[in-house]
Design a protein around this nucleic acid. Structure first.
Lengths: 148, 148
DNA sequence: ACTGAAAGCAGTTTCAC
DNA sequence: GTGAAACTGCTTTCAGT
């Protein structure tokens, strides 16, 4: 468990503002939260140093790039397989966006992004052949909603 | 399906650079991809206009904010429930980060972020009571790996 | 389409209070 | 935490290739 960090309502407001637009300026946010630019800068610096803010990134519409199909693959591995191995083998596939190791009868939930259904087929086949996979079940995403 | 967009290798490189650091400057990227600042600006502008870049955001370590538990809830709804309804009822819960409607015997995959196990219990109970849920199965995330 | 330079401007950063 | 000042350096434009 990471160290607890003191984060008040204004900090949360700043995080929310940066969530909507990660390039918002200190002066702009200062106006919104009712603080000075200097105070906002100090707070954001502090949030970065505390590890609350880990970075900034661009949001991309992958469908526009021709990668219009998204899916989750539930994967089961042989009992001997360890977690590190699971993540390493799955993340090696370029189509894999995220790997979640989970508790329960399932071992991992693998999020993939592919061009089309043929491509999905191929990726799932590839996943099944890697390491010590004993079974998969693929959930194709029809629609998605994401917070903010 | 969205309109196809012409995106060459340099555009991909720019997207990758912005993915790592969404605040990277045009001049900085220009040096890396071997183009002038002006050319990089025009390309990024074009990617925004084409809808490939949908925005910029901050990356937050939620565990540091005291929300250390993540889970996926697989949800089944009564046959009559439509997709819009599913997304609306689930996304109304503040702990819900994302809702994926999926093909198959399952109807939705709901990603939640909570403070602790008691909180998870509570959210799942709440989800089960909303709308026309007929069953859930919750996968608690033990570890995660995300691209880039 | 990209370059290079110049202008202008905005954001960051610092410091005394 | 404020406010102002100084600085930095980024964005933006434009003529030229």
């Amino acid at each position: 468990m990471p160290a607890a960090v003191d984060v008040d309502d204004i900090d949360h407001a700043l995080l929310r503002l940066l969530g909507v637009d990660g390039r918002r300026t200190f002066a702009d946010m200062a106006g919104t939260v009712g603080l000075s630019t200097a105070a906002v800068k100090r707070r954001v610096d502090r949030l970065r140093e505390a590890g609350v803010i880990t970075g900034f990134t661009v949001q991309v519409d992958h469908a526009r790039l021709g990668w219009g199909v998204e899916a989750f693959s539930e994967v089961r591995y042989a009992g001997s397989t360890n977690v590190t191995e699971i993540v390493e083998t799955a993340s090696r596939q370029p189509e894999v966006q995220a790997v979640y190791t989970v508790a329960g009868d399932l071992d991992a939930l693998v999020q993939v992004r592919v061009r089309d259904l043929d491509h999905l087929q191929e990726v799932v086949d590839r996943l099944r052949r890697t390491g010590t996979v004993t079974g998969t079940r693929t959930l194709m995403v029809l629609g998605r909603w994401t917070r903010s």
